[in-house]
Computed example of a mutant assay.
Amino acid sequence: MTPQETLERMRAASDNFYNEAVRTNCHTFIEFTGLLNEYIKICEENLAVGIDFTQSNAHIKGPQLKIQEHEVDYLNEKLCCIFQGLIILGQQEADK
């Protein structure tokens, strides 16, 4: 499967998650869709510059994703809503 095909399946999975999350009537659970969609957007941006996001994780020595400061801010906004500010992402100096 190509990274582009993976992105398409990720979008479909996020859409399905959103549809089911809405049925829970739990706002913070629905907010996870925002995390999923931002991750998908970050993966798309990285793929566009030649970084294979499918190999980027902490378990293997793959390429590190590039994440822009405004994306970290958005992810923190979602995490703050979900976990009431108990989890905050940082940004490495080299990535700013």
Rank of each mutant, 00 (worst) to 15 (best):
M1K: 09
T2A: 10
T2P: 11
P3S: 11
P3T: 01
Q4M: 09
Q4R: 14
E5Y: 11
E5V: 10
E8K: 15
R9M: 10
R11K: 15
A12T: 13
A12H: 09
A13L: 15
A13D: 13
A13Y: 10
A13Q: 15
S14C: 07
D15I: 07
D15V: 03
D15T: 13
N16I: 09
F17T: 04
F17C: 05
Y18S: 14
Y18D: 10
Y18G: 07
Y18H: 15
E20Y: 04
V22Y: 09
V22W: 07
V22F: 04
R23D: 10
T24W: 08
T24A: 11
N25S: 11
C26Y: 09
T28H: 04
F29H: 10
F29D: 04
F29L: 11
E31A: 14
G34W: 01
G34A: 08
G34T: 06
G34N: 14
L35G: 05
L36P: 04
E38R: 13
E38D: 11
E38C: 03
E38I: 02
Y39K: 13
Y39Q: 05
Y39H: 14
Y39C: 14
Y39R: 09
I40P: 06
K41T: 13
I42F: 02
I42Q: 00
E44R: 10
E44G: 05
E45Q: 14
E45K: 14
L47Y: 13
L47E: 05
L47K: 04
A48G: 02
A48Q: 12
A48N: 12
A48H: 02
V49L: 09
V49N: 06
V49F: 02
V49Q: 13
I51T: 09
I51E: 03
I51Y: 01
F53L: 07
T54N: 13
T54H: 12
T54W: 06
Q55F: 06
S56T: 08
S56P: 06
N57M: 06
A58H: 08
A58D: 05
A58F: 04
I60F: 08
K61C: 08
G62P: 02
P63E: 12
P63M: 08
Q64Y: 06
L65C: 03
L65R: 02
K66E: 08
I67M: 09
I67E: 02
Q68P: 00
Q68T: 10
E69L: 10
E69F: 04
H70I: 07
E71L: 03
V72N: 01
V72F: 01
D73W: 05
Y74M: 05
N76I: 03
E77P: 00
K78A: 06
L79V: 02
L79M: 08
C80A: 09
C80N: 14
C81D: 10
C81W: 04
C81K: 15
F83A: 11
Q84P: 00
L86E: 13
I87D: 01
I87H: 00
I87Q: 00
I88Q: 07
L89T: 07
G90T: 15
Q91K: 15
Q92G: 08
Q92K: 14
Q92A: 07
A94Y: 12
A94T: 10
D95A: 12
D95C: 10
